[in-house]
């Protein structure tokens, strides 16, 4: 089973990279871009077919290591 994990800076925390990219897009004429959040994309190959178990384990991985809850939020998909 494959897990796809997305980690981004929390909405209420300034994302300095996202802001710089938004400003750059604006200066290139893409004025419709109101906000950019830059994050991390991770692909995890899991040696299991048990979807419920995988969900619990990936959540634990996110809480423990993959995201820092002080500044980041995460979501993931299983396929």
């Amino acid at each position: 089973m494959k897990a796809t994990v997305y980690v981004t800076i929390r909405q209420n925390v300034l994302d300095p990279q996202g802001k710089a990219v938004r400003d750059a897009l604006g200066s290139l004429g893409f004025e419709e871009v109101k906000d950019v959040r830059i994050g991390k994309y991770m692909e995890l190959e899991l040696a299991t077919e048990d979807r419920a178990a995988a969900e619990a384990r990936v959540r634990e991985m996110c809480e423990k290591l993959l995201a820092n809850p002080v500044i980041e939020e995460y979501r993931f998909e299983l396929a």
Binding site: I9, V13, L14, D15, P16, Q17, A20, N68, V70, I71
Partner: peptide, 11 residues
């Protein structure tokens, strides 16, 4: 210690 680090605001 509490808190976390972000990229420098200036990048």
């Amino acid at each position: 210690l509490p808190g976390a680090m972000l990229r420098n605001r200036s990048l």
